[in-house]
């Protein structure tokens, strides 16, 4: 554990912390709006620590979706992390078991991107650097959730201040972040149509699983393309 490495990590993570802060506060406000207490919102930010999936979770919870489907959706939205941890495996082999545990817990999109970048440049990836980078994002994320939740509780009608439009636009932004991937347009078109049809004919919350399954099955069935897969590092959560 070296101090210099730790503070280098903190400095590197600082701008990302600033960029993520509004989303932490937004999560807090929307969580309270969807029936969470302030403590629930903070608890979720501290334990799940994955912004997009937390938004998905509260949206589905607010719509009284079955619990197993909420957990499955959180799992699905976070599935990209499997690729991240596979990809950075070569850089964190020298961590101890406990360090790996903590490192994977903190493995959010920018943490992955920065670790990958550093590793490619041949810079050492010490646990101190990793921890400094991770904590400067993690701790403010929890504090911002608390601030957002406190403000959220003071707001009466979310429609009156336009809160209801934020989640769909936010998710739209996330979808657009994946537009460089293979078969992006057909997947989005099929999932979109299937989810609207599911909403119309079956009803919420089934439209989520129906739409998602349609896009995933399509992707698996299409003939393999020659295009190299887009690097996940260019995608970011917020």
């Amino acid at each position: 554990m070296t101090k210099d490495d730790f503070w280098e990590g903190v400095r590197g993570g600082f701008p990302i912390m600033l960029a993520a802060s509004p989303f932490g506060a937004l999560f807090g406000a929307l969580a309270v709006d969807n029936g969470f207490t302030i403590a629930d919102a903070v608890f979720m930010s501290a334990t799940v620590y994955a912004g997009a999936s937390q938004m998905v979770g509260i949206e589905l919870f607010g719509n009284n979706v079955q619990p197993w489907l909420v957990v499955l959706s959180v799992f699905a939205v976070n599935f990209r992390h499997v690729l991240y941890s596979a990809s950075i495996a070569k850089y964190v082999r020298h961590f101890t078991f406990g360090q790996k545990f903590l490192a994977f817990f903190l493995l959010v999109d920018p943490q992955y991107a920065e670790t990958e970048k550093r590793g490619e440049r041949g810079l050492p990836i010490s646990f101190s650097w990793y921890l400094g980078f991770g904590l400067i994002i993690y701790i403010p994320w929890i504090i911002n959730t608390l601030i957002g939740a406190i403000f959220g509780q003071m707001i009466g009608d979310p429609k009156a201040i336009g809160l209801d439009v934020l989640l769909p636009v936010y998710f739209m932004g996330l979808v657009m972040g994946f537009r460089k991937r293979d078969r992006f347009l057909p997947i989005v078109a099929v999932s979109g149509l299937a989810s609207v049809a599911g909403m119309h004919f079956v009803g919420s919350p089934w439209h989520v699983s129906i739409g998602a399954l349609a896009g995933i099955v399509l992707a698996a069935c299409l003939p393999p393309s020659n295009q190299a897969p887009a690097p996940a590092a260019v995608e970011k959560e917020a």
Partner: peptide
Amino acid sequence: AALNAVPAAVLTTLVAPA
């Protein structure tokens, strides 16, 4: 390919109905 499609497919279902 299926794993690659997961995020766009899931997130689209939260956008299109809205």
